[in-house]
């Protein structure tokens, strides 16, 4: 299991840098330090057509849950969630 993002403490000091390969002892130490979520790299075996279809599904879902008119604050939230979903789907 490889870290996708560095783990930092509350002061911002890096505990483990991205790219570190984790073993069980390291995971146990992180849990004891109160770390409750980490990002790990997952092998991506998708082809381009699959990714394109997933991106279309993401856009359809955002359009559905943001249906109807709303404030400009709601529009900004929609744009932020759409950008996030696209980045994490690619």
């Amino acid at each position: 299991m490889t870290l996708a993002r560095a783990i930092t403490d509350r002061e911002g000091s890096v505990l483990l840098s991205s790219g570190t390969v984790l073993d069980l002892a390291m995971l146990e130490r992180l849990i004891r330090r109160g770390v409750d979520a980490i990002s790990v790299l997952v092998p991506d075996n998708r082809d381009e057509a699959t990714i394109a279809e997933e991106l279309r599904a993401v856009e359809r879902r955002i359009e559905t849950i943001f249906r109807g008119a709303g404030s400009s604050a709601r529009d900004q939230l929609r744009d932020a969630v759409l950008t996030y979903r696209i980045e994490t789907t690619k």
Partner: peptide, 19 residues
Amino acid sequence: NRVPDLSELACANLGLSWP
């Protein structure tokens, strides 16, 4: 699921920037 309307004032009072 449908996202409710979001108050501009509430976001401004919290100093929130979505990006």
